[in-house]
């Protein structure tokens, strides 16, 4: 067993458990767009970032690929994590505003403005379909093509593939082309129909602490900022 600190709690998990799995086990939700329990972790969407290490010498890692280590200090909702995560969601919305999954993420993580011009893409290149086709369906009909800003998912030479059995697993697992979000308007690509109030913790703490009961932040005197 590996013992480490997860958001201030002493926890222990089996060796080889990723931080994402550990957080899931302890009921802490970490958003992700490229992870599926049946597929190998890829670390591409960067939404599952967590902060590891002691403050001042910490860094962000993707929790889906990082395995728990003895004595590690992990924070899943620190200010640094939230700042990065919100900006990433903002970019996701601008990239693919019609995805309900992404719009819901935006509301959940209180992204209320998008400062980028919308692109209306259908693909966020999370790679779920590529891994699904390879690892679960053993077909290897599609793969990533090109690199950098020109990357896309395609069959070889963009032709009908002989390896494809038309199983539809790629469509099943796609987070971007699932149920379309009806909310966003032309002038405002953000839906925000299911927006929740952002917990006020971050104003006082470096971490969001609302999963704690009772909520420490709400009970504290507003003048005191113990962690900041």
């Amino acid at each position: 067993m590996v013992n480490f600190t997860l958001n201030g709690l002493e926890v222990s998990v089996e060796k080889g458990t990723t931080l994402l799995e550990a957080a899931d086990f302890y009921g802490i939700e970490i958003p992700t767009l490229c992870h599926d329990k049946g597929l190998s972790p890829y670390g591409a969407c960067r939404l599952c970032l967590v902060e590891i290490g002691t403050p001042g010498r910490s860094r962000l890692v993707s929790s889906c690929t990082y395995q728990a280590r003895e004595g590690l200090n992990v924070r899943t909702h620190s200010e640094r994590v939230i700042k990065a995560r919100k900006l990433l969601i903002e970019m996701y919305v601008a990239l693919c505003p019609s995805s309900k999954v992404i719009q819901c993420l935006a509301s959940k993580y209180h992204v209320t403005k998008v400062r980028f011009s919308p692109k209306h893409e259908d693909c966020i290149l999370c790679g779920l379909c590529v891994r699904m086709c390879d690892e679960q369906m053993q077909a290897k009909a599609i793969s990533f093509v090109n690199r950098g800003g020109r990357r896309l998912v395609s069959t070889p030479f963009a032709k009908k593939s002989e390896d494809c059995r038309l199983c539809g697993a790629c469509i099943y697992i796609c987070p971007a082309c699932q149920t379309r979000c009806q909310g966003p308007q032309e002038e405002n690509i953000l839906c925000n129909a299911c927006l929740n109030l952002e917990p006020p913790c971050l104003e006082k703490f470096e971490d969001v602490m609302c999963y704690m009961d009772p909520c420490v932040a709400c009970e504290l005197n507003t003048d005191k900022k113990p962690n900041k």
Partner: peptide, 17 residues
Amino acid sequence: SMSHLYSLATFYKCFSL
């Protein structure tokens, strides 16, 4: 798989299709 070769051929700049 053809898809693996194709992704190599498009990833590296030394190849031309």
